[in-house]
Amino acid sequence: MFGQLVINGMAVGSLYALVALAMVIIYKASEVPNFAQGEMAMVSTYFAYMLLISDRVPWQLALLGTLVFAFVLGMVLEFLFVRRAKEPTVLDLIIVTLGMQLVLHGLAGWKWGPDQKDFPLPISDTEVVQVGGVVISYLNLTTMITALVLMGLLYAFFQYTKIGVAMKATQQNWMAARINGIRTNHILGITWGISSVIGALAGVLFAPTSTLDPHLMWDPLIKGFAAAVMGGMNSLVGAALGGYLLGFLENLFGLYISLEFKSIVAFLAIVLVLWFRPSGLFSKHYERRV
């Protein structure tokens, strides 16, 4: 029973971790919680939906196309809206992301309609594999593996590639990055692109368990944000751990206390963490950039 709980927690936690990572990557670079993150993922998921139902491309290619679309979407949004803000305060940027959220939400409702669609991902949510006494659906298994692989890739990217290191440098000191020959504007664009790709992965993996409509990502976004806050908004490792922890806590709460009120765990977690350890559970204390 407990093993099953851990696995279920990890599966849903993987989704939260993906959303949290997407948020934290942007937060570290642009210093803003990106409230459009969920709608960006939702729009990308609709893009995947269109490719999947068209029957013209194999589904693997459709997913690859979706990731490319998501990358471009992130870069375009950064270029069109975020970069336009001149010497913005944090509040200005929050308003910009809220604006983007409304625009994307409206566009999705207009283009695809408010009705709920089944998301035809050919990875089964109901067929299961059994390991020991624990069952896990193919979809959940895919989600967990995807999240782990992605974390590995992100680690390698930030550690070993020129752009990844430049991204880290830009996050730590924007001015020093510029005078050392780093094109910080490009770096910000790429940051948004990568974040958008991670969000799209979360959307595509989440949609089959839910139904596809413009509200698709509202719940995962709130959970992902909670996970990011728990982990400390400045830490990628913290965001991932926060995601898993939240998924686990939710399932624990659902099993032993109340299934209907499972959702309040996320909010409770945000409040408690901000109360007792505002810099996050897993982050070393990180002073604010001035």
């Binding site: 990217f157 752009i163 990844g164 020093a176």
Partner: peptide, 24 residues
């Protein structure tokens, strides 16, 4: 203006950014 959460070595390596090839 340093990259304060990096080591001395990493800071100096970033100084060589323009000489690095696109590592991706």
């Amino acid at each position: 203006e340093l990259f304060s959460h990096m080591t001395t070595m990493d800071n100096l390596l970033l100084g060589r950014h323009i000489h690095l090839r696109s590592g991706v």
